[in-house]
Design a protein around this nucleic acid. Structure first.
Lengths: 121, 121
DNA sequence: CTAGTAATAGGAATAATTACTGTTTATTTT
DNA sequence: AAAATAAACAGTAATTATTCCTATTACTAG
């Protein structure tokens, strides 16, 4: 992957926030520094940065969000305002400790384990 | 919610498969029984059925899929073929027991806990 | 049976994302 | 450092998934 100013900017923007931004938000930010950049460039580079492990793509409903935190961690998603809050899970009494630590009332859990199924050995 | 033939059909189709179908697939199926149905009707009813708790909506990347199984359960998602496999999680040695039971090699875990954050008390 | 309301079909509109094309730019080779 | 080459770019068109809108149809209560 060769150097590009645009990609550096995009990386910097993703790393600048804890808000799990969408491509559109990133686009707006990057544009203020580099007004000619196109949305295609944003998407292309976000995908590339994800593949190279510099950032992480998370799917929130049906929009992609991007996260600078590449360590294994999870999210609390507020169903009222849509906020995503970072969380590190240990096997404690989850719901209870989450209520205490985050003042967050869990009502549903979505878990997907990614990997390879037995068709690919 | 008053009775509708279309909605019954849609419900029946979702309940007929373990493949976590998309709106489009459901559309194709329902069409063969009721050719005049429109995609809008599919979406409207899938949303309604979800709200009334007859089915469950799950997000797979950025497409919605629908699941007749409304009990709390989770999914193994194969990164090669995209298959979603139902799984019931207990707090065992997850990855290990999944390898054994499902012959599925977990490489990443996505967890989102849905609920209300402290801005809504 | 008829008015009022929920649900529908069909199509237009929107939003998110990807694909294509000709041009620019970073790196490699001279 | 100039020329060659291949990746990355801007701009735009295309695609895909989903929602919205409107006129019509079909239940249901009186």
């Amino acid at each position: 992957m060769r150097f590009s100013h645009q990609r550096e900017l995009i990386k910097k923007v993703v790393h600048s926030t804890n808000s799990h931004p969408t491509a559109d938000w990133i686009y707006a930010q990057v544009r203020s520094a580099s007004p000619k950049i196109s949305l295609g460039t944003i998407y292309r580079n976000l995908k590339q940065l994800t593949e190279e492990g510099f950032i992480r793509t998370i799917y929130d409903g049906n929009v992609a969000r991007y996260d600078w935190n590449i360590n294994s961690h999870h999210h609390l998603k507020c169903m009222e305002c849509g906020d995503l809050i970072d969380i590190q899970l240990s096997n404690e009494d989850m719901t209870k400790s989450i209520r205490k630590e985050f003042d967050f009332e869990v009502s549903d859990v979505e878990i997907t384990l990614l990997g390879k199924c037995n068709k690919h050995n």
